[in-house]
Design a protein around this nucleic acid. Structure first.
Length: 517
RNA sequence: GGCUGGUUGGAGAAACGGUUAACUCACAAGCCUUUCACGCUUGCAUUCACGGGUUCGAAUCCCGUACCAGUCACCA
């Protein structure tokens, strides 16, 4: 099985392209086949220099590495269409000789005049049948025009008929009828470069592609392509027209647009810090909906152990669902080892958030300890959906950022007097008890709470609120705020343990000093 | 407008004519809990775009209507 991804060098990697290449790459690899990448740069007007390589690099970030491409090369090259001109020329020449094609000298003005006429006559517009005027040009006229240097295109001589129906088979959509193509479509433009239709024919034949995966916008031109393969006597490839990813915009669904939607670029998600594992997994869920069930059965398996199936792909373009991407990403990050998430977070931060990278790099083991809190096991914490979520949650572990919290308003419960707060802090400072196991440490904390006039039990407190300043939770909150500057943190015991008594003392002292001001 | 697909809850969707329309995300309530994050429980479409038909029985088959998407270039 040979599949391919054939981008035009018109900009960044589009999410739909990532989806398409993911599907075709997986399909080839599942069958131990070949996946290659060919650059379709025949539209010189829209070309953006360098974007071909950028697309290849972005694919590589997602782990999609072609077996053959326009950088790597391969036995069936060149892999850039503009470099394949000699090949197209040979085929064009053969078609001309076989009377399968002819030159056309009609100008844009001629064509629009003809279109206007066809519209007024209420017949199908286009270049076909009697309207295909250049088809009937005498040889001498053609030669004269050629000699004169008149610009021309080469058109395919269609023998199709609008009244004929042909059966179409698509790997995703199954079989259905379409009408035969009767248009003498342009196969070579006046600049000497092939149109998509012709390049598809020649390239996918000589590059021995067996399955054409492409967006569903190509489905309508399938009769043209089949006709072309048949005319040449070449084997037809199989086709899989992939659904397009949609978004909802002002109440209507539409294709994600390169121009209008920043999230159409995969780099947008890279930059935002979504883990590639999560993003790929999301794409798999829209590719095959039985993927989710498989994931529940195989929570830790590699997603590529899943067998993708065109038959199980939806026909409709799915709406892109960022909430689902987040949920899946949260899971993926939660199940990474501390080493893995540390390396990946650092790699991300190095590019997109230097101050975060600096903090990690200042003491990698310290960061690893923080990120390890309640990691591992069956039910790990799920704090982060993306790498950019990490730092805002744990930044207080770094003194510089802790100081920033302390310079602002501290969120202490206003009904408690400063004296009580200070008493609580001093009491804990004298008994950090961090050499104890978590449960014993917490028991000890309850004792300290009791001493300070707080109920060790929330239930007890609720029964008799007047008897206490608050409950164990309120008591812990005071210490938490003093040590972190915030009302919530990951598991407090581990936070304290990682900070260590020395740093805890410093922070508590600082808080007391602030309170006494 | 012609042609080709499609239409199940807020989103992704399952259901190969047969009892109460899976599952995931979101949302809501509750439980658990020192905070947070998890986790757990429950709720969330009396109904499958609409109308008609076939059938003992239809989301599933047939017909019509509406709506959505794609396409009709010397762009891919």
């Amino acid at each position: 099985m040979v599949t391919r991804f054939a981008p035009s060098p018109t900009g960044f990697l589009h999410m739909g392209s990532l989806f398409a290449s993911l599907c075709s790459w997986r399909y080839a690899k599942q069958s131990k086949g070949v996946f290659f990448c060919r650059l379709e740069d025949t539209d010189t007007k829209r070309e953006i220099t360098g974007s071909g390589n950028q697309v290849l690099q972005e694919l590589a970030i997602y782990g999609i590495i072609p077996d053959e491409d326009f950088v790597l090369g391969g036995a069936y090259g060149p892999y850039v269409q503009s470099e394949r001109k000699p090949i197209y020329d040979v085929v064009i020449k053969a078609m001309l000789l076989d009377d399968l094609a002819y030159p056309c000298f009609c100008t844009h003005e001629d064509l629009s005049a003809m279109r206007a006429k066809q519209e007024s006559l209420k017949v199908n517009p286009g270049y076909y049948g009697e309207y295909a005027t250049c088809r009937f040009l005498p040889k001498e006229t053609v030669l004269a025009k050629l000699k004169n240097g008149d610009p021309f295109v080469i058109r395919f001589k269609s023998n199709g008929n609008q009244t004929h129906k042909i059966m179409i088979t698509d790997l995703i959509r199954g079989s259905f009828e379409m009408t035969e193509n009767d248009q003498d479509i342009v196969i070579m433009k006046s600049d000497g470069l092939p149109t998509y239709h012709f390049a598809h024919l020649v390239d996918d034949h000589f590059m021995r592609t067996t399955i054409i995966t492409r967006g569903e916008e190509w489905m309508a031109s399938l009769p043209i392509h089949l006709q072309l393969f048949d005319a040449m006597g070449w084997d037809r490839p199989q086709y899989a027209h992939l659904p397009v990813i949609m978004k909802i915009d002002e109440g209507t669904r539409r294709k994600l647009s390169k121009r209008k939607d920043p999230e159409a670029a995969v780099s947008y998600f890279l930059e935002a810090g979504y883990p590639i594992e999560g993003f790929l997994e999301y794409l798999m869920t829209i590719a095959n909906t039985n993927f989710e069930a498989w994931r529940i059965e195989n929570p830790q398996a590699n997603i590529f152990d899943f067998q993708l199936s065109f038959a199980k792909m939806t026909l409709d373009g799915a709406l892109f669902d960022l909430e689902k991407v987040k949920s899946i990403s949260k899971d993926r990050l939660a199940f990474m080892s501390a080493d893995e998430i540390t390396n990946k977070a650092l790699a991300w931060a190095n590019i997109y958030e230097p101050q975060f990278a600096l903090a990690i790099a200042s003491d990698v083991d310290y960061f690893k300890a923080i990120i390890s809190i309640e990691r591992g096991g069956e039910k790990p914490r799920k704090d982060y959906a993306k790498y950019s979520d990490i730092f805002p949650i744990i930044d207080f572990m770094y003194d510089q950022y802790y100081d920033q919290y302390m310079s602002g308003e501290l969120p202490f419960n206003e009904s408690l007097s400063k004296d009580i707060l200070i008493k609580v802090l001093n009491t804990y400072k004298a008994n950090p008890s961090l050499d104890l196991q978590e449960s014993e440490w917490f028991e000890k904390l309850k004792v300290l709470a009791s001493i300070c006039g707080f109920s060790p039990s929330v239930k007890e407190y609720k029964k008799n609120k007047e008897a206490f300043y608050g409950h164990i939770g309120d008591f812990a909150e005071i210490i938490r705020i003093a040590v972190s500057g915030r009302k919530n943190t990951p598991n407090f015991y581990y936070i304290l343990k990682i900070l260590g008594t020395e740093r805890i003392n410093k922070r508590i002292n600082k808080t007391i000093a602030l309170l006494e001001e």
